[in-house]
Every structure is written in structure tokens, then in C-alpha cells.
Design a protein around this nucleic acid. Sequence first.
DNA 1: TTAAACTTTCAATAAATATTGAAAGTTTAA
DNA 2: TTAAACTTTCAATATTTATTGAAAGTTTAA
Lengths: 168, 168
Amino acid sequence: MKFPDAKKQFIKTWGTLGSEWGINRSMAQVHALLLIAPKPLTTEDVMEELSISRGNANMNLRDLINWTLVSKELIAGDRKEYFVAEKDIWEIARRIAKERKRREIEPVLKALIQLQEFEGTKSNLEHQAFIDTVGKLGKFVGKMDKSVEVMLKADESWFFGTLLKLLK
Amino acid sequence: MKFPDAKKQFIKTWGTLGSEWGINRSMAQVHALLLIAPKPLTTEDVMEELSISRGNANMNLRDLINWTLVSKELIAGDRKEYFVAEKDIWEIARRIAKERKRREIEPVLKALIQLQEFEGTKSNLEHQAFIDTVGKLGKFVGKMDKSVEVMLKADESWFFGTLLKLLK
DNA sequence: TTAAACTTTCAATAAATATTGAAAGTTTAA
DNA sequence: TTAAACTTTCAATATTTATTGAAAGTTTAA
């Protein structure tokens, strides 16, 4: 396989994964492109490589910066903005985990805890099933949240090495 | 908060989480409804409770069955099909993990391994950056895959117990 | 200042995805 | 058998989400 095809294939694969995980396909593709770029790219580079519009490239780059997966880089003597992706895979995983925890797990946890205030009637089957499920789900999501915290504090070799060895 | 509101709130919360994770909002809502149902529901029950069409209810129930999160239940002397959700939260998590591993992680891993066949030119910066990133990503996704395998074999108290104890 | 170089915004449009509902298909009781 | 009871399918439609591109906004060099 020649380089241009390998590159296309990689971008496509990452884009597919992104969309399966609720992430905009273009955003995942811009990320893929930057992940394999040996040097900072401009908005124009991204537009050209992925055949997307300026607005699209700009918005997705901005989103990637919000996710802290990409940062702007200034190059002396050039007015253009350049972009680079974080290349350390473990660091990427941590940043994604951190954001998803904040954006998704925490609000759900909060909602579930709030729903635990519902008291209901002891003799009412529907009420009891609700209380039971919401209680168990709340506990579970709480543990998930704590687990992500552990992962955020850990370093990669501890996480994959020590932990997984202990769990076997 | 009264029961009907708590119920609505729960269904809404679960639906939102679903759509953030690339799952059809209706499918997540049908799941939520079944999770808190004290007894099996029919397609009609689902249609009515969620104000969705017969076709929609049917398709989402079928999808949930494919995910092994819901099963059909026969009630003697009744021609209708009834549906129940798995209620054990750890079991739900395992089944989701199992399916996502199979549908998403494994194909990406396969693609990344295949891309590692690309050899490239030593003096070519682009080639070297590509090889480096794809190699590291492949290793990482491989570890993720293994971790999910561990989780699938573990039981809940072992998994969260060990993990969370190590935090302290 | 000014104007060129560059970035951002956003209303219009396109594309993707979900939903409907009626028709076709299947099963069962009589 | 048949027809009622029930489930599934799928083309049409609606809804949501992503993309475009030109205009507005910002920054910088001269």
C-alpha cells in the first residue's frame, strides 16, 4: 500500500470510529490528519487535504481545541495560525476521558441522584421498580465516575500494567 | 416530584446519554422505559408511553434484542409479545461493552494492524510520523481491547473493588 | 490610518438519520 | 381453511445535524 492510500485509510478509519462514538465525522478526520502530520498545519492545509470548506475546517479545529486535543502554534514571521495535535496517545485518552466525564457522566449522575429523592408508595409496584433501578444505576454511574478519576490520576504503565495484571 | 414526572425525567436523561454515545435516542428511551417497568410491556405499551409509532417501537425493540439488553417474553394465553429488559446493571454494562468491542474496537484494531504493514521511506518525515502514530495507536487500542476482555471476565465487586481500593 | 491577510460567524443548504403509517407478512384459534 | 390478531417492512416524510461560502470581524505591516 502506497502512502497516500494508507493516509486516506487511516483518516477514514478514525472518522468512522468518531461517528460511532457520537463525535462529528469531520472533527475526527481533522484530528486524524493532525495526528499523522509531522509538522503544524494551517486551516488551508486541512481544507485541502480533507476537501472541506473553510468554515467547516475552522469550526472543527476550534472544537478540537476545546477538547484540548489540538493547540494553536505560532510560527515566527508568519501571520497564519498553525495547528498541532497532542501526539501522546495516553494523554489523548486522558483528555477525552476528562471531557466526557465532565460533559456526560457528571450531568447523568447529578440527574440520577436527584431522582433518588423520589419516595413513592411502598405498595406501588411501579414506584418500587423505579426506586430500585434508579438507585442501582446511580451507584453504578457513581463508580464509573470514580474509576475515570482513578484513570486520570494514574499513569499509563500503572493503568495497563499493574492494574490489568492484578485483575487477571 | 410526583411519579409521572420522575419517570419522564428518567427517560429523558437516559435518552440524552444515549444520543451522546451514538445511540438512537428512541432506542435509549425504550430501554429506559423497560428498565423501570415492574412487568413485561407490549409494543403497544411502548408506543403509548413514549408517543412513538408502531414501526418505530418495533424496530427499537428489535435493536435492543440484538444488543441483548432486552428479551421477548411469552405470557400464557396471550398472543401478544411482551418485552423485558435485563435489570442487573453490571450485566447491562458487560453486554454493552461486549457489543461495542465487537462492533467498534475490533474493526479499528484490525485496520490499524493492517496499516502497520506500510513500510515507507526512512528519510521521509511524513512516512515516519505516520508509522509512529499508527504504531502507538495500534498498541493502545490493543490494550483497550484486552482491558475490555478482562472486564468481561471479571465480576463487578472484583472490578470496582480492586480498582477503587487502589486509588486510596 | 489603511488595506491586505487572515479568522470567525451564521443564514442558507445539503446530507444524514429517525420516524411514520399503511401494506405485506405471519401466526393462531376456531 | 379463513379471518382476526399480531408483527414486520419499507417508501415517504420529517427531523436533526453537518457543511458551505460569503460577509463581517480582527489583526498586522507599512
